[in-house]
Design a binder for these strands. Structure first.
Lengths: 197, 197
DNA sequence: CGGTGTGTTGATCCCCGTCAAGTGTGGTGG
DNA sequence: CCACCACACTTGACGGGGATCAACACACCG
Protein backbone atom coordinates (compact mmCIF):
# COMPACT_ATOMS: atom_id res chain seq x y z
CA UNK A 1 0.00 0.00 0.00
CA UNK A 2 1.48 3.29 -1.12
CA UNK A 3 -0.68 5.37 1.19
CA UNK A 4 -4.05 5.22 2.91
CA UNK A 5 -7.07 7.46 2.68
CA UNK A 6 -7.27 10.12 5.38
CA UNK A 7 -3.53 10.30 5.98
CA UNK A 8 -1.79 13.63 5.52
CA UNK A 9 0.00 13.98 2.22
CA UNK A 10 3.73 13.95 2.71
CA UNK A 11 4.86 13.52 -0.85
CA UNK A 12 3.55 13.64 -4.39
CA UNK A 13 3.72 10.45 -6.43
CA UNK A 14 3.67 9.70 -10.11
CA UNK A 15 3.60 6.20 -11.50
CA UNK A 16 6.91 5.31 -13.14
CA UNK A 17 6.10 1.70 -13.93
CA UNK A 18 3.51 -0.90 -13.10
CA UNK A 19 -0.13 -0.50 -12.17
CA UNK A 20 -1.61 1.06 -9.03
CA UNK A 21 -5.19 1.24 -7.82
CA UNK A 22 -7.15 3.91 -6.03
CA UNK A 23 -9.55 2.13 -3.74
CA UNK A 24 -11.89 2.43 -0.79
CA UNK A 25 -11.46 -0.08 2.00
CA UNK A 26 -14.54 -1.87 3.29
CA UNK A 27 -15.12 -4.17 6.25
CA UNK A 28 -14.10 -7.80 6.02
CA UNK A 29 -11.20 -7.05 3.70
CA UNK A 30 -13.49 -6.04 0.87
CA UNK A 31 -12.71 -3.00 -1.23
CA UNK A 32 -14.06 -0.95 -4.08
CA UNK A 33 -11.42 -0.02 -6.62
CA UNK A 34 -12.22 3.43 -7.93
CA UNK A 35 -9.57 3.74 -10.61
CA UNK A 36 -6.48 2.09 -12.00
CA UNK A 37 -3.33 4.17 -12.43
CA UNK A 38 -0.78 3.58 -15.17
CA UNK A 39 2.58 4.98 -16.09
CA UNK A 40 2.58 8.76 -15.91
CA UNK A 41 -0.55 9.06 -13.78
CA UNK A 42 -0.52 11.23 -10.69
CA UNK A 43 -1.41 9.25 -7.58
CA UNK A 44 -2.40 12.04 -5.22
CA UNK A 45 -5.90 13.36 -4.82
CA UNK A 46 -5.58 16.14 -2.30
CA UNK A 47 -8.57 16.94 -0.14
CA UNK A 48 -9.02 20.43 1.18
CA UNK A 49 -7.63 19.38 4.55
CA UNK A 50 -4.44 18.12 2.92
CA UNK A 51 -5.17 14.41 3.33
CA UNK A 52 -5.42 11.62 0.80
CA UNK A 53 -8.89 10.96 -0.55
CA UNK A 54 -8.36 7.28 -1.40
CA UNK A 55 -6.17 4.36 -0.56
CA UNK A 56 -3.49 3.76 -3.15
CA UNK A 57 -1.88 0.36 -3.59
CA UNK A 58 0.26 -1.49 -6.09
CA UNK A 59 -1.56 -4.02 -8.24
CA UNK A 60 1.63 -5.26 -9.90
CA UNK A 61 5.26 -4.71 -9.12
CA UNK A 62 5.48 -0.98 -9.52
CA UNK A 63 7.75 2.01 -9.02
CA UNK A 64 6.78 5.62 -8.44
CA UNK A 65 8.54 8.91 -8.72
CA UNK A 66 8.01 10.75 -5.44
CA UNK A 67 8.62 14.39 -4.49
CA UNK A 68 8.51 15.39 -0.86
CA UNK A 69 5.75 17.90 -0.29
CA UNK A 70 7.88 20.04 2.01
CA UNK A 71 10.40 20.53 -0.78
CA UNK A 72 7.62 21.71 -3.03
CA UNK A 73 6.50 24.41 -0.66
CA UNK A 74 9.84 26.16 -1.05
CA UNK A 75 9.08 26.77 -4.70
CA UNK A 76 5.89 28.72 -4.61
CA UNK A 77 6.18 29.48 -8.28
CA UNK A 78 6.40 25.82 -9.15
CA UNK A 79 3.65 24.86 -6.77
CA UNK A 80 1.19 27.00 -8.71
CA UNK A 81 1.81 24.92 -11.81
CA UNK A 82 1.71 21.75 -9.78
CA UNK A 83 -1.46 22.89 -8.08
CA UNK A 84 -2.93 23.27 -11.53
CA UNK A 85 -1.94 19.72 -12.39
CA UNK A 86 -3.47 18.43 -9.17
CA UNK A 87 -6.72 20.22 -9.92
CA UNK A 88 -6.74 18.67 -13.36
CA UNK A 89 -6.25 15.29 -11.75
CA UNK A 90 -9.30 15.82 -9.54
CA UNK A 91 -11.39 16.65 -12.60
CA UNK A 92 -10.12 13.59 -14.43
CA UNK A 93 -10.86 11.44 -11.40
CA UNK A 94 -14.39 12.78 -11.12
CA UNK A 95 -15.03 12.13 -14.79
CA UNK A 96 -13.77 8.60 -14.57
CA UNK A 97 -15.55 7.84 -11.32
CA UNK A 98 -18.86 9.04 -12.70
CA UNK A 99 -18.35 6.96 -15.80
CA UNK A 100 -17.56 4.04 -13.52
CA UNK A 101 -20.79 4.67 -11.67
CA UNK A 102 -22.68 4.30 -14.94
CA UNK A 103 -20.82 1.09 -15.72
CA UNK A 104 -21.61 -0.47 -12.38
CA UNK A 105 -25.12 0.90 -12.11
CA UNK A 106 -26.52 0.20 -15.55
CA UNK A 107 -24.74 -2.68 -17.24
CA UNK A 108 -24.58 -6.45 -17.06
CA UNK A 109 -21.45 -8.33 -16.09
CA UNK A 110 -20.28 -8.95 -19.65
CA UNK A 111 -20.98 -5.37 -20.64
CA UNK A 112 -19.06 -4.02 -17.66
CA UNK A 113 -16.11 -6.18 -18.54
CA UNK A 114 -16.18 -5.04 -22.15
CA UNK A 115 -16.26 -1.42 -21.11
CA UNK A 116 -13.35 -2.08 -18.81
CA UNK A 117 -11.35 -3.70 -21.60
CA UNK A 118 -11.93 -0.71 -23.86
CA UNK A 119 -10.85 1.59 -21.06
CA UNK A 120 -7.66 -0.44 -20.73
CA UNK A 121 -7.11 -0.29 -24.47
CA UNK A 122 -7.52 3.46 -24.41
CA UNK A 123 -5.09 3.85 -21.52
CA UNK A 124 -2.48 1.76 -23.32
CA UNK A 125 -2.97 3.57 -26.61
CA UNK A 126 -2.36 6.92 -24.92
CA UNK A 127 0.94 5.59 -23.65
CA UNK A 128 2.05 3.95 -26.86
CA UNK A 129 1.78 0.48 -25.38
CA UNK A 130 0.62 -2.48 -27.47
CA UNK A 131 -3.14 -3.04 -27.44
CA UNK A 132 -3.20 -6.18 -29.57
CA UNK A 133 -3.00 -8.36 -27.70
CA UNK A 134 -4.15 -6.45 -24.67
CA UNK A 135 -2.31 -7.20 -21.43
CA UNK A 136 -4.32 -7.74 -18.24
CA UNK A 137 -1.86 -6.96 -15.46
CA UNK A 138 -4.45 -7.21 -12.68
CA UNK A 139 -6.06 -10.35 -11.30
CA UNK A 140 -9.67 -11.40 -11.84
CA UNK A 141 -10.30 -10.45 -8.26
CA UNK A 142 -8.98 -6.93 -8.86
CA UNK A 143 -11.20 -6.60 -11.90
CA UNK A 144 -14.12 -7.79 -9.83
CA UNK A 145 -13.40 -5.23 -7.11
CA UNK A 146 -13.33 -2.59 -9.80
CA UNK A 147 -16.49 -3.63 -11.64
CA UNK A 148 -18.54 -4.57 -8.59
CA UNK A 149 -18.74 -8.29 -9.24
CA UNK A 150 -17.26 -11.55 -7.98
CA UNK A 151 -14.17 -13.02 -9.52
CA UNK A 152 -16.12 -16.06 -10.74
CA UNK A 153 -18.49 -13.73 -12.52
CA UNK A 154 -15.49 -12.04 -14.16
CA UNK A 155 -14.38 -15.43 -15.46
CA UNK A 156 -17.84 -16.20 -16.79
CA UNK A 157 -18.06 -12.77 -18.38
CA UNK A 158 -14.78 -13.45 -20.18
CA UNK A 159 -16.15 -16.78 -21.33
CA UNK A 160 -19.29 -15.11 -22.64
CA UNK A 161 -17.39 -12.44 -24.54
CA UNK A 162 -15.18 -15.09 -26.10
CA UNK A 163 -18.18 -17.22 -26.98
CA UNK A 164 -19.67 -14.26 -28.87
CA UNK A 165 -16.31 -13.62 -30.46
CA UNK A 166 -16.20 -10.08 -29.11
CA UNK A 167 -12.78 -10.80 -27.69
CA UNK A 168 -10.22 -13.41 -28.63
CA UNK A 169 -8.30 -15.41 -26.10
CA UNK A 170 -4.51 -15.43 -26.16
CA UNK A 171 -3.86 -16.46 -22.58
CA UNK A 172 -5.30 -15.77 -19.17
CA UNK A 173 -3.63 -12.38 -19.05
CA UNK A 174 -3.75 -11.42 -22.73
CA UNK A 175 -6.86 -10.92 -24.83
CA UNK A 176 -7.62 -9.45 -28.24
CA UNK A 177 -10.42 -6.95 -28.63
CA UNK A 178 -12.36 -7.48 -31.84
CA UNK A 179 -13.59 -4.19 -33.14
CA UNK A 180 -17.25 -4.60 -33.94
CA UNK A 181 -20.28 -3.57 -32.08
CA UNK A 182 -17.98 -3.96 -29.11
CA UNK A 183 -16.59 -0.46 -29.49
CA UNK A 184 -20.00 1.15 -29.42
CA UNK A 185 -20.62 -0.28 -25.98
CA UNK A 186 -17.58 1.11 -24.36
CA UNK A 187 -16.89 4.56 -25.72
CA UNK A 188 -17.96 7.99 -24.67
CA UNK A 189 -20.41 9.26 -22.15
CA UNK A 190 -23.41 7.94 -24.00
CA UNK A 191 -22.84 4.22 -24.39
CA UNK A 192 -24.99 2.38 -26.86
CA UNK A 193 -27.93 0.20 -26.10
CA UNK A 194 -27.06 -3.23 -24.85
CA UNK A 195 -25.88 -5.47 -27.65
CA UNK A 196 -25.26 -8.29 -25.24
CA UNK A 197 -28.35 -10.34 -24.69
CA UNK B 1 -33.30 20.81 -17.55
CA UNK B 2 -31.14 23.58 -16.15
CA UNK B 3 -28.20 22.78 -18.41
CA UNK B 4 -26.69 19.85 -20.28
CA UNK B 5 -23.31 18.21 -20.01
CA UNK B 6 -20.77 19.45 -22.52
CA UNK B 7 -22.35 22.86 -22.99
CA UNK B 8 -20.24 25.92 -22.28
CA UNK B 9 -20.92 27.46 -18.90
CA UNK B 10 -22.68 30.76 -19.24
CA UNK B 11 -23.73 31.33 -15.67
CA UNK B 12 -23.15 30.00 -12.18
CA UNK B 13 -26.10 28.54 -10.34
CA UNK B 14 -26.88 27.93 -6.74
CA UNK B 15 -30.00 26.15 -5.55
CA UNK B 16 -32.38 28.55 -3.83
CA UNK B 17 -35.23 26.08 -3.30
CA UNK B 18 -36.28 22.63 -4.40
CA UNK B 19 -34.16 19.67 -5.45
CA UNK B 20 -31.99 19.31 -8.54
CA UNK B 21 -30.09 16.32 -9.87
CA UNK B 22 -26.75 15.96 -11.56
CA UNK B 23 -27.10 13.15 -14.05
CA UNK B 24 -25.62 11.42 -17.05
CA UNK B 25 -27.93 10.82 -19.98
CA UNK B 26 -27.99 7.35 -21.50
CA UNK B 27 -29.64 5.95 -24.63
CA UNK B 28 -33.36 5.16 -24.61
CA UNK B 29 -34.11 7.91 -22.13
CA UNK B 30 -32.27 6.18 -19.33
CA UNK B 31 -30.04 8.12 -17.00
CA UNK B 32 -27.72 7.73 -14.07
CA UNK B 33 -28.25 10.31 -11.37
CA UNK B 34 -24.87 11.14 -9.88
CA UNK B 35 -25.96 13.43 -7.09
CA UNK B 36 -28.90 15.31 -5.68
CA UNK B 37 -28.57 19.02 -5.00
CA UNK B 38 -30.40 20.81 -2.21
CA UNK B 39 -30.77 24.37 -1.08
CA UNK B 40 -27.43 26.15 -1.03
CA UNK B 41 -25.60 23.67 -3.25
CA UNK B 42 -23.60 24.90 -6.20
CA UNK B 43 -24.79 23.38 -9.44
CA UNK B 44 -21.79 23.98 -11.67
CA UNK B 45 -18.97 21.52 -12.11
CA UNK B 46 -16.56 23.27 -14.43
CA UNK B 47 -14.37 21.14 -16.65
CA UNK B 48 -11.02 22.46 -17.78
CA UNK B 49 -12.48 23.41 -21.16
CA UNK B 50 -15.13 25.54 -19.48
CA UNK B 51 -18.04 23.19 -20.14
CA UNK B 52 -20.49 21.49 -17.81
CA UNK B 53 -19.50 18.04 -16.64
CA UNK B 54 -23.02 16.72 -16.00
CA UNK B 55 -26.59 17.36 -16.94
CA UNK B 56 -28.48 19.27 -14.30
CA UNK B 57 -32.24 19.09 -14.01
CA UNK B 58 -34.98 19.96 -11.57
CA UNK B 59 -36.45 17.03 -9.65
CA UNK B 60 -39.10 19.16 -7.97
CA UNK B 61 -40.28 22.67 -8.56
CA UNK B 62 -37.12 24.58 -7.90
CA UNK B 63 -35.53 28.01 -8.13
CA UNK B 64 -31.87 28.87 -8.53
CA UNK B 65 -29.81 31.94 -7.99
CA UNK B 66 -27.81 32.53 -11.16
CA UNK B 67 -24.88 34.82 -11.87
CA UNK B 68 -23.82 35.43 -15.42
CA UNK B 69 -20.27 34.20 -15.94
CA UNK B 70 -19.31 37.22 -18.05
CA UNK B 71 -20.15 39.49 -15.12
CA UNK B 72 -17.88 37.46 -12.88
CA UNK B 73 -14.89 37.89 -15.15
CA UNK B 74 -14.96 41.61 -14.54
CA UNK B 75 -14.22 41.02 -10.88
CA UNK B 76 -10.97 39.13 -10.95
CA UNK B 77 -10.62 39.52 -7.22
CA UNK B 78 -13.96 37.93 -6.59
CA UNK B 79 -13.41 35.20 -9.12
CA UNK B 80 -10.46 33.92 -7.13
CA UNK B 81 -12.67 33.29 -4.14
CA UNK B 82 -15.34 31.84 -6.38
CA UNK B 83 -12.77 29.67 -8.10
CA UNK B 84 -11.88 28.34 -4.68
CA UNK B 85 -15.51 27.51 -4.02
CA UNK B 86 -15.80 25.76 -7.35
CA UNK B 87 -12.73 23.67 -6.61
CA UNK B 88 -14.22 22.72 -3.27
CA UNK B 89 -17.36 21.68 -5.07
CA UNK B 90 -15.39 19.36 -7.37
CA UNK B 91 -13.79 17.71 -4.34
CA UNK B 92 -17.14 17.31 -2.67
CA UNK B 93 -18.58 15.84 -5.84
CA UNK B 94 -15.73 13.36 -6.17
CA UNK B 95 -16.15 12.26 -2.57
CA UNK B 96 -19.85 11.74 -2.97
CA UNK B 97 -19.56 10.02 -6.33
CA UNK B 98 -16.98 7.57 -5.01
CA UNK B 99 -19.20 6.85 -2.02
CA UNK B 100 -22.03 6.33 -4.45
CA UNK B 101 -19.90 3.89 -6.40
CA UNK B 102 -19.48 1.84 -3.24
CA UNK B 103 -23.20 1.94 -2.59
CA UNK B 104 -24.09 0.73 -6.06
CA UNK B 105 -21.23 -1.71 -6.37
CA UNK B 106 -21.32 -3.50 -3.05
CA UNK B 107 -24.76 -3.38 -1.49
CA UNK B 108 -28.16 -4.97 -1.91
CA UNK B 109 -31.24 -3.04 -2.87
CA UNK B 110 -32.48 -2.53 0.68
CA UNK B 111 -29.03 -1.51 1.89
CA UNK B 112 -28.62 0.99 -0.92
CA UNK B 113 -31.96 2.53 -0.07
CA UNK B 114 -31.06 2.76 3.60
CA UNK B 115 -27.77 4.47 2.80
CA UNK B 116 -29.64 6.87 0.58
CA UNK B 117 -32.12 7.69 3.33
CA UNK B 118 -29.30 8.43 5.75
CA UNK B 119 -27.67 10.65 3.15
CA UNK B 120 -30.93 12.52 2.82
CA UNK B 121 -31.24 12.85 6.57
CA UNK B 122 -27.72 14.25 6.75
CA UNK B 123 -28.39 16.75 3.98
CA UNK B 124 -31.53 17.94 5.73
CA UNK B 125 -29.85 18.16 9.11
CA UNK B 126 -27.10 20.36 7.68
CA UNK B 127 -29.77 22.73 6.44
CA UNK B 128 -31.88 22.73 9.57
CA UNK B 129 -34.76 20.99 7.84
CA UNK B 130 -36.92 18.45 9.68
CA UNK B 131 -35.65 14.88 9.49
CA UNK B 132 -38.46 13.24 11.40
CA UNK B 133 -40.38 12.49 9.42
CA UNK B 134 -38.04 12.57 6.48
CA UNK B 135 -39.43 14.04 3.27
CA UNK B 136 -38.83 12.23 -0.02
CA UNK B 137 -39.18 14.94 -2.64
CA UNK B 138 -38.07 12.72 -5.53
CA UNK B 139 -40.04 9.94 -7.19
CA UNK B 140 -39.29 6.22 -6.85
CA UNK B 141 -38.01 6.34 -10.39
CA UNK B 142 -35.55 9.10 -9.50
CA UNK B 143 -34.34 7.10 -6.52
CA UNK B 144 -33.92 4.08 -8.78
CA UNK B 145 -31.92 6.10 -11.30
CA UNK B 146 -29.72 7.22 -8.44
CA UNK B 147 -29.23 3.83 -6.81
CA UNK B 148 -28.97 1.79 -9.98
CA UNK B 149 -32.17 -0.17 -9.63
CA UNK B 150 -35.69 -0.28 -11.03
CA UNK B 151 -38.52 1.67 -9.46
CA UNK B 152 -40.33 -1.55 -8.53
CA UNK B 153 -37.25 -2.67 -6.68
CA UNK B 154 -37.24 0.64 -4.81
CA UNK B 155 -40.80 -0.04 -3.70
CA UNK B 156 -39.92 -3.54 -2.56
CA UNK B 157 -36.86 -2.25 -0.75
CA UNK B 158 -39.07 0.21 1.13
CA UNK B 159 -41.41 -2.62 1.99
CA UNK B 160 -38.52 -4.71 3.26
CA UNK B 161 -37.13 -1.90 5.44
CA UNK B 162 -40.57 -1.30 6.89
CA UNK B 163 -41.09 -5.00 7.51
CA UNK B 164 -37.86 -5.05 9.53
CA UNK B 165 -38.92 -1.90 11.29
CA UNK B 166 -35.79 -0.05 10.20
CA UNK B 167 -37.98 2.73 8.87
CA UNK B 168 -41.51 3.71 9.73
CA UNK B 169 -44.06 4.63 7.13
CA UNK B 170 -45.86 7.95 7.34
CA UNK B 171 -46.92 8.29 3.74
CA UNK B 172 -45.50 7.56 0.31
CA UNK B 173 -43.28 10.62 0.50
CA UNK B 174 -42.53 10.74 4.22
CA UNK B 175 -40.74 8.08 6.23
CA UNK B 176 -39.22 7.87 9.69
CA UNK B 177 -35.72 6.55 10.14
CA UNK B 178 -35.40 4.39 13.23
CA UNK B 179 -31.97 4.75 14.73
CA UNK B 180 -30.65 1.28 15.37
CA UNK B 181 -28.23 -0.79 13.46
CA UNK B 182 -29.53 1.22 10.56
CA UNK B 183 -27.13 4.07 11.18
CA UNK B 184 -24.09 1.84 11.11
CA UNK B 185 -24.91 0.86 7.58
CA UNK B 186 -25.05 4.29 6.13
CA UNK B 187 -22.38 6.40 7.75
CA UNK B 188 -18.81 7.09 6.91
CA UNK B 189 -16.45 5.68 4.35
CA UNK B 190 -16.27 2.30 6.00
CA UNK B 191 -19.83 1.08 6.17
CA UNK B 192 -20.57 -1.83 8.43
CA UNK B 193 -21.08 -5.39 7.44
CA UNK B 194 -24.44 -6.13 6.00
CA UNK B 195 -27.06 -6.29 8.70
CA UNK B 196 -29.78 -6.96 6.17
CA UNK B 197 -30.14 -10.61 5.34
C1' DC C 1 -65.88 11.68 -14.43
C1' DG C 2 -62.37 9.75 -17.25
C1' DG C 3 -57.24 10.47 -17.95
C1' DT C 4 -52.67 10.70 -16.35
C1' DG C 5 -48.95 10.02 -13.31
C1' DT C 6 -47.15 7.82 -9.20
C1' DG C 7 -46.91 4.10 -6.06
C1' DT C 8 -47.60 -0.81 -4.75
C1' DT C 9 -47.85 -5.71 -5.25
C1' DG C 10 -47.87 -10.23 -7.74
C1' DA C 11 -45.82 -13.74 -11.09
C1' DT C 12 -42.08 -15.24 -13.59
C1' DC C 13 -37.42 -15.61 -15.40
C1' DC C 14 -32.64 -15.27 -15.35
C1' DC C 15 -28.42 -13.23 -13.93
C1' DC C 16 -25.15 -13.42 -10.58
C1' DG C 17 -23.49 -14.64 -5.70
C1' DT C 18 -22.09 -18.59 -3.36
C1' DC C 19 -20.04 -23.02 -2.52
C1' DA C 20 -17.44 -26.44 -4.49
C1' DA C 21 -14.25 -29.05 -7.30
C1' DG C 22 -10.69 -29.27 -10.62
C1' DT C 23 -6.80 -27.31 -13.63
C1' DG C 24 -2.59 -25.32 -14.49
C1' DT C 25 1.81 -22.80 -13.06
C1' DG C 26 5.47 -21.14 -10.22
C1' DG C 27 8.12 -21.60 -5.96
C1' DT C 28 10.19 -24.12 -2.16
C1' DG C 29 12.33 -27.74 0.10
C1' DG C 30 13.33 -32.56 0.42
C1' DC D 1 14.72 -33.82 -9.98
C1' DC D 2 10.46 -34.19 -8.03
C1' DA D 3 6.92 -33.90 -4.39
C1' DC D 4 4.40 -30.54 -2.35
C1' DC D 5 2.14 -26.32 -1.75
C1' DA D 6 0.29 -21.81 -2.80
C1' DC D 7 -2.10 -19.07 -5.85
C1' DA D 8 -4.67 -17.69 -9.85
C1' DC D 9 -7.96 -19.18 -12.99
C1' DT D 10 -11.86 -21.95 -14.66
C1' DT D 11 -16.14 -24.46 -14.59
C1' DG D 12 -20.27 -26.71 -12.51
C1' DA D 13 -24.46 -26.71 -9.43
C1' DC D 14 -27.66 -24.32 -6.93
C1' DG D 15 -30.42 -20.68 -4.81
C1' DG D 16 -31.81 -16.00 -4.23
C1' DG D 17 -32.31 -11.25 -5.59
C1' DG D 18 -33.66 -8.19 -8.82
C1' DA D 19 -35.41 -7.14 -13.76
C1' DT D 20 -39.42 -7.50 -16.34
C1' DC D 21 -44.27 -7.67 -17.43
C1' DA D 22 -48.60 -7.03 -15.60
C1' DA D 23 -52.50 -5.53 -12.84
C1' DC D 24 -54.32 -2.53 -9.54
C1' DA D 25 -54.87 1.41 -5.99
C1' DC D 26 -54.78 6.18 -5.43
C1' DA D 27 -54.39 11.22 -5.99
C1' DC D 28 -54.64 15.00 -8.91
C1' DC D 29 -56.61 17.60 -12.61
C1' DG D 30 -58.75 19.04 -16.76
Amino acid sequence: MLFAAGKPIKSLHRVASGVLARSIALPKGRRQIVDFLFTGDICNLVQSDGTHMFDCEAITDATTCAVDASVLRKFTGASVAIGKALEEEVLRALNRTAEQLVTVGKFSAAERLLRFLHLLEEAYAERGLPTRPLALPMTRSDIGDYLGMQLETVCRAFAKLKARDLVGSVSAEHVVLHRRKAASLAHGKTPAVSALV
